[in-house]
């Protein structure tokens, strides 16, 4: 074991490194380069142009807002699910895990179309809200932000549940008992014990879902349409419809840096927690 020097360990990561450089790093470099190099050489004009248009700020806001709402819905549904998963045993747990992981094998497009059906004026959600008397008249959920967030949350839910579950299952159950014997009531135990202990899982889950949600393209295209632009849909429009590569690479770069900032922020949050504990 002792002769495994760090150099040789690093060697194991080489295939992944080569692969990522070829299929990811080089194209991204090219993309970023294109946003800065125009016919008149190096300039930041596209960025200035883009950011001086109020509509584009709206697009950035839409992107972050949808991602934040999606993350919130995933967290509210995902945390109790992860908790149930960590409490369950044997067969029940296996069934639950399959139910969470299997939907990942269904394509995003298929799921998005399914949500179109669910969110229709005569869809199951509208019918349910009508039947329970929450709504007096059928409304369209499709092509609304609510519909988009519901659909996106459904698709990204496993990425919230699994990181939280992986942390929860390592928590010693006797900690809860110890807290109870110290006179701590359930609500206090939840906020002072359960949540802090699960924090690293919650932070990872949120950062994964948030990153996925800021860069989703197919889901907003099918569930909300062109009226509601986000950075990814705008990028696609620029490349595919407007044939404006410079605009497309600019929006793509902005999206990239937003996502990197979020991932780094969460990584820092997690590290700070680990230093504390």
């Amino acid at each position: 074991m002792s002769d495994r020097t760090p150099d040789r360990v690093a060697l194991l990561a080489l295939p992944a490194l080569v692969y990522m450089v070829i299929v990811f790093a080089i194209p991204v470099m090219v993309l970023i380069g294109r946003s800065f190099f125009g016919p008149s050489g190096l300039s930041v004009t596209p960025y200035i142009d883009f950011l001086s248009d109020g509509f584009n700020w709206r697009v950035i806001f839409n992107t972050l807002r949808t991602a934040a709402l999606t993350t919130l819905v995933c967290l509210v549904i995902g945390y109790p699910t992860a908790l149930a998963l960590s409490w369950s045993k044997g067969f029940v747990q296996a069934i639950m895990l399959v139910a969470i992981i299997l939907p990942l094998s269904v394509g995003v497009i298929v799921k998005a179309f399914a949500w179109q059906i669910v969110l229709r004026r005569d869809g199951i959600v509208a019918s349910l809200l009508m039947a329970t008397g929450v709504w007096d008249e059928p409304k369209l959920l499709l092509f609304t932000e609510t519909g988009l967030v519901l659909g996106a949350a459904n698709i990204f839910l496993p990425f919230m549940i699994l990181p939280i579950y992986s942390v929860l299952k390592l928590i010693d159950p006797s900690l809860q008992h110890a807290a109870a014997t110290l006179g701590a009531p359930p609500v206090y135990r939840f906020f002072r014990l359960s949540l802090p202990l699960a924090a690293s899982g919650i932070i990872s889950g949120c950062s994964i879902v948030f990153s996925l949600a800021t860069s989703m393209y197919v889901i907003p295209s099918l569930l909300i349409g062109d009226r509601y632009q986000t950075l990814p849909t705008l990028t696609a429009r620029a490349f595919l419809l407007m044939r404006n590569e410079r605009l497309g690479s600019t929006t793509a770069t902005i999206l990239l840096f937003l996502t990197i900032a979020i991932v780094m922020l969460t990584a820092w949050l997690v590290r700070r927690r680990e230093v504390q504990t």
Partner: peptide, 30 residues
């Protein structure tokens, strides 16, 4: 939590995210 029966568990069940003093303070803060 309403009994007033203290327990020292076999594995001690100390709270890993807290310091020594915070562990001792946990029940008092509730």
């Amino acid at each position: 939590h309403m009994r007033g029966v203290g327990v020292v568990f076999q594995n001690y069940a100390l709270f890993p995210h807290l310091t020594v003093a915070q562990n001792v303070a946990f029940g008092l803060k509730a």
